[in-house]
């Protein structure tokens, strides 16, 4: 029974309720730091880490968290973990920390974390909550890495640093804000198309 549900958590997070393209949560970092595939991947891992840890703690504390003011508690817990993750990042991966900039700190207010905290962790046991976090974390990371890759290829001409398109023939707008908006819109539309096809 438990095994089914772990799988279900992962399946949900990665596909059915993919946070980026289905639920459309955590849009800010998705748009802002996906200038390269590497940044996207890094941001995804950071967010996933904070998500998993936050869900775990919230699930542990679920009986003590007051129902009315639970938002504040979520925010504080997310902020705690964000601070810790940021310190780890600064220490061991300073160049990534610099690329991601302020968005690491903004993970504390990432809608994805509150969405899962309120949608799952507050009512379920810690063990499954961890897997909920893993599932949704993977789903999120997958999409923003793909978006980062697309933007990198179109906008700069490389992927993970390896040059594919010669310099001077790149569509710079893909690496800039407008491009991010358009490309994410396309990804979500593709997901909608796939989703629409499956469900009757």
């Amino acid at each position: 029974m438990k095994k089914d549900t772990i799988f279900k958590r992962l399946y949900h997070g990665i596909l059915i309720e993919n946070p980026s393209v289905v639920l459309c949560l955590g849009l800010c970092p998705t748009l802002a730091v996906t200038t390269t595939a590497k940044n996207g991947l890094a941001m995804g891992i950071v967010t996933a880490a904070v998500l998993i840890l936050s869900e775990f703690v919230i699930s542990l504390l679920k009986r003590i968290i007051p129902k009315k003011d639970r938002m504040i508690v979520y925010v504080l817990i997310a902020a705690c973990w964000t601070t810790i993750v940021q310190l780890v990042l600064n220490a061991y991966f300073p160049d990534i920390s610099e690329s991601l900039g302020i968005f690491v700190a903004l993970t504390a207010v990432n809608g994805l974390i509150f969405g899962r905290a309120d949608g799952y962790a507050i009512e379920n046991n810690p063990f499954l909550s961890i897997f909920d976090g893993i599932g949704f974390g993977i789903g999120y990371t997958l999409i923003i890495t793909i978006l980062g890759a697309i933007r990198e290829i179109l906008g700069i001409g490389t992927i993970f640093g390896i040059r594919i398109i010669p310099d001077g023939y790149t569509l710079s707008i893909a690496a800039l804000a407008p491009g991010a908006f358009f490309l994410l819109a396309c990804l979500i539309a593709i997901a909608n198309k796939i989703k629409g096809g499956r469900r009757v």
């Binding site: 459309c24 804000a177 991010a180 908006f181 358009f182 994410l184 819109a185 539309a189 909608n192 198309k193």
Partner: peptide, 15 residues
């Protein structure tokens, strides 16, 4: 177009 209804078209507008 149906796949773009909702958030996607709003993102296009934002772009």
């Amino acid at each position: 177009p149906k796949p773009f209804e909702g958030v996607p078209i709003l993102l296009v507008v934002s772009g």
